[in-house]
C-alpha cells in the first residue's frame, strides 16, 4: 500500500525482451550476407571501406559522447556500427578512403549527434552521410568500377540504372539482365552488388520481427505500380517494374534504411503512407528526374514527414469516439 507508485511515461507500455542492443545486433547480423557478397565482388576495396566506415562512425560517436559528457556505454549499443556499415554499403567501391572517412564522420555528427543522439534524429544518419558526400563530391560518388568477378577491362563502368537513364538501354537492348541483378555481378554501390544476399538478411529480420513488413512491401507496391503503368504503355522505352525493384539501392533502401526504427512511423497507417510515398518518389526520380537513382533522396524526404505521420495517423484509442 505504502509503496504504490504510478509509472509516468509515454507509450508503449508493454515491454518485451527486445532491447536496443539486441535489435541492433540482429540488424548487423542480417547485413552480413550482403557484406560478404560485396567483399566477394570487390575484394580488398570492400573490406577497407566497410572497416573504415565502421571505425570512423564509432570514433565520431565517442568524440561526441565525450563532448556532451555522456556515458560511453552507449557506444556498444551497435547503432553506430550499423550506421557505418550501411553507409559503406551505399558508397561506390572506387571511392577514395578519405572521402569515406568524411562521410562517416558527417553521418554521425550531422545526421545523429546534433539532434541529440540515438532516438532523436529525424533523418537516417547513414543516408545523411551519403547525401553529404553526394553533394560534396558528385563526380567521385558517381564513378563506378566493375566487380572483380566481371571479366571486363574498363576503368569506369555504368550502373544498370545509369545505363537505363543515359544510354537508352531499353531501346538499345543493352539493359542489364534481371538474372545478374538478382544474383550479383553488376556495377554499383557495395551493397547493391547482389539482391539475393540482401533478401536473405531481410527475411531474417522479418522473421524476427525486427522490421515492419509494411514498409518494404509498400515501397515495392507503389514503385511497381508507378513504373508498371509506364512499362505497360510503352515497353520499348521503359524498364519493367521488376528491373526497378532489383536494381540500384531499392533493396537495401527498402529493407534496411527505410525501416530504421527511429526514423520511420510508429502506426501501421503511418507506415503505409510513408512506404507508398517513398516508392512513388523513387519512381518519379528514376523516370523523370535528373539523377538515375532516387532511393536516398526519397527516404530522406519521407523521413521528414514521420513526425507529422506519427501525429495524424495514430491508431484510434480504444473507446475513443471518432471526431466525424
Amino acid at each position: 500500500m505504502t509503496n504504490k507508485t504510478f509509472i509516468l511515461q509515454s507509450s508503449p507500455h508493454f515491454k518485451d525482451k527486445d532491447s536496443v542492443p539486441k535489435i541492433m545486433y540482429a540488424v548487423i547480423f542480417s547485413l552480413m550476407p550482403a557484406a560478404f557478397a560485396s567483399i566477394y565482388f570487390f575484394r580488398l576495396k570492400a573490406v577497407v571501406m566497410l572497416f573504415s566506415c565502421v571505425v570512423v562512425s564509432l570514433a565520431t560517436e565517442a568524440i561526441f559522447l565525450w563532448l556532451r559528457k555522456k556515458p560511453f556505454h552507449s557506444l556498444l549499443d551497435g547503432s553506430s556500427v550499423i550506421t557505418g556499415l550501411i553507409l559503406a554499403m551505399t558508397l561506390p567501391p572506387s571511392l577514395s578512403l578519405e572521402l569515406a572517412v568524411i562521410g562517416a564522420a558527417a553521418a554521425i555528427a550531422i545526421g545523429k549527434q546534433v539532434f541529440g543522439g540515438l532516438g532523436h534524429n529525424i533523418f537516417n544518419p547513414a543516408l545523411v552521410g551519403r547525401a553529404f558526400l553526394q553533394t560534396s563530391f558528385p563526380v567521385a560518388m558517381t564513378t563506378w568500377i566493375p566487380p572483380v568477378t566481371a571479366k571486363i577491362n574498363t576503368a569506369t563502368y555504368a550502373t544498370p540504372l545509369a545505363n537505363l537513364k543515359f544510354e537508352e538501354a531499353v531501346a538499345q537492348g543493352t539493359l542489364t539482365p534481371l538474372k545478374d541483378l538478382f544474383w550479383g555481378n553488376i556495377g554499383g554501390c557495395l551493397g547493391e552488388a547482389s539482391a539475393i544476399t540482401l533478401l536473405i538478411g531481410a527475411l531474417y529480420l522479418l522473421f524476427r520481427r525486427v522490421i515492419d513488413w509494411r514498409i518494404p512491401v509498400g515501397i515495392m507496391v507503389s514503385l511497381s505500380a508507378f513504373t508498371g503503368v509506364f512499362w505497360l504503355i510503352s515497353p520499348e522505352k521503359y524498364a519493367s517494374p521488376l528491373f526497378h525493384i532489383l536494381s540500384g539501392g531499392l533493396m537495401i533502401g527498402a529493407f534496411f534504411m527505410a525501416t530504421d526504427m527511429v526514423t520511420s512511423p510508429i502506426s501501421p497507417l503511418g507506415s503505409w503512407i510513408y512506404a507508398l510515398g517513398i516508392g512513388l518518389i523513387v519512381g518519379l526520380i528514376r523516370l523523370f528526374g535528373g539523377f538515375p537513382e532516387g532511393v536516398m533522396y526519397s527516404i530522406l524526404f519521407m523521413n521528414a514527414f514521420v513526425p507529422l505521420l506519427n501525429r495524424y495517423a495514430r491508431p484510434q484509442i480504444l473507446g475513443e469516439r471518432s471526431k466525424r
Binding site: 578519405e98 553533394t135 560534396s136 563530391f137 567521385a140
Partner: peptide, 9 residues
C-alpha cells in the same frame, strides 16, 4: 584537398 562542394551550396 578535394573541395567540399556542399559547403558553397
Amino acid at each position: 584537398f578535394k573541395p567540399w562542394i556542399i559547403m558553397i551550396l
